[in-house]
Lab assay of single mutants.
Amino acid sequence: MATDAALRRLLRLHRTEIAVAVDSAFPLLHALADHDVVPEDKFQETLHLKEKEGCPQAFHALLSWLLTQDSTAILDFWRVLFKDYNLERYGRLQPILDSFPKDVDLSQPRKGRKPPAVPKALVPPPRLPTKRKASEEARAAAPAALTPRGTASPGSQLKAKPPKKPESSAEQQRLPLGNGIQTMSASVQRAVAMSSGDVPGARGAVEGILIQQVFESGGSKKCIQVGGEFYTPSKFEDSGSGKNKARSSSGPKPLVRAKGAQGAAPGGGEARLGQQGSVPAPLALPSDPQLHQKNEDECAVCRDGGELICCDGCPRAFHLACLSPPLREIPSGTWRCSSCLQATVQEVQPRAEEPRPQEPPVETPLPPGLRSAGEEVRGPPGEPLAGMDTTLVYKHLPAPPSAAPLPGLDSSALHPLLCVGPEGQQNLAPGARCGVCGDGTDVLRCTHCAAAFHWRCHFPAGTSRPGTGLRCRSCSGDVTPAPVEGVLAPSPARLAPGPAKDDTASHEPALH
């Protein structure tokens, strides 16, 4: 009773807030009518008042009428009001819900409408889902798969039609296919003929059939049928067999079959498995989609049935006599038709004709302190090069084509190399640097090759510096006499390219 009084008091307290929050009759008014909170006449009256005075006034009048009803109607109103779709449509209802007392429970059932309790003993237990329907569909599909699609060729003596089998029958139906081979029951999904010589313990000319048996419980189990008994694959494991010639990621696949039913060829011909030897223990289905393919039931050349050999690369099948050149017997292992072999060759040939990528240039590290003349020119003028003790990398590039010797140069053309002071002394051009340390401070000019250098860098042994005729380390061993002091540049003949010694390969005349 306390809860009923509290709900009535809360409705009177929030009546105006609810009326202002509800700006549309749908969905709240319609939901109240659906849950029998508002009768039909009051529903029509509220809609009429909404058209006349507006939605807030109409709902305020409806809530005032609701306060005169019993506690069950008020409880049902609060339940409908706080439904998710009403809270989404009328956003101003959320503060009312947040301020609702926590001790007021809106989930209690309506009085007088409590459903009768059902004894637990009368409640049926839930049924577990079964796979009976899938099993029945598999039974119905198996006879259809064994139905012949056409008439065999005159040369083929193997013609068999499976008798119709009602689904209610649980007995196995067997077809006489000759040579002791028996087909599987209607619940078998796949059958492959297997030679009895590969099964340990088999006697006589009995041949087993590799099947997948579907049981009534819905589970499946792969086994071997020899005669009327089934054997699990673990009985046929043979770890010492060295003649297993397995197909790549293979499961067994029928390579020879008669049109209309699988079996042995007439005249004692023995149908073979995809792999010879003992049956392997793992009978998992292969991951290669080509091995799941269903080959055609007629020859791809003459479009006739009979004894066919199936290609492992495509769905086509052929007569042995229709092949070019014809085959006398079934080859062992994987067999592919000429079209598949030709496609494989065409895929391999473009790969062989692809040009080989060019090898990157060989990189040879230079000892610290040495650099090529090109690196000396590329440096920024007026700045010493940083990191001189790091190992430089010199790339061996292809030799350029031989060019004509340089033409003779006048001494005026070499004027930018040297600057003559007032006393006739050779001065260095701006930006000249030593080729060893890279520093341009207090550098000297070689009178023979006009290269800038430090005496301490080229002659670290402490050799005394002569007063005139300074030469760098590369030119100090040259027998050519030094030019007379005061000459602007060496003779043009000295600039012609010539053979250089091994220790002077990195010091070429550089223009500054």
Rank of each mutant, 00 (worst) to 15 (best):
P254V: 13
G267W: 15
L106I: 00
S24I: 02
E51P: 01
K164A: 12
W78N: 00
S107Q: 02
N244D: 11
H35W: 05
M184D: 00
S195R: 12
E167M: 15
V20G: 01
P119M: 05
V118M: 14
F236G: 06
E167A: 08
K161W: 03
L13N: 01
A186K: 06
M184Q: 06
P148Y: 15
F82T: 01
V104F: 12
A145Y: 15
L81W: 02
S156K: 03
K245F: 15
G240E: 04
L177N: 05
I181T: 03
R127G: 04
D4W: 03
P252Q: 08
T183N: 12
Q189G: 04
D103A: 03
V256F: 14
E53I: 15
K131G: 01
S99R: 03
D98C: 02
P126R: 01
L177Y: 15
E171L: 15
S185A: 08
A170M: 02
A134D: 03
P266S: 07
P27N: 03
S169Q: 03
A191P: 06
Q69C: 02
P166D: 10
V199G: 11
I74Y: 02
A5M: 09
G150K: 15
E207H: 07
E53N: 02
P116K: 07
G180I: 03
G269A: 14
Y90N: 02
W65S: 03
G251M: 05
T232L: 11
E136Y: 14
P39H: 03
E207I: 02
A73F: 02
K133P: 04
E216Q: 09
D98S: 02
F82N: 00
V256K: 02
R149M: 04
I181P: 00
E45Y: 01
L11Q: 05
P101A: 04
K159E: 09
K133T: 03
S234K: 08
L63V: 05
W65P: 01
Q108E: 15
A205D: 07
A160N: 03
S234R: 13
F236T: 01
A21V: 03
S24Q: 01
V20H: 00
L177C: 06
V123R: 08
G54Q: 00
L29N: 02
R132Q: 03
C223M: 09
A2V: 01
R15F: 02
V214H: 02
P162F: 14
P154N: 06
T130C: 14
K243D: 02
Q225T: 06
M184I: 10
Q69H: 01
L122T: 06
E270Q: 12
I74T: 00
L81A: 01
V38D: 00
E53A: 11
S185G: 08
V199N: 08
S135L: 10
R9E: 01
S168Y: 14
D70G: 08
F77R: 01
A144Y: 15
F43T: 01
Q212V: 00
S250D: 04
L255C: 04
D4R: 01
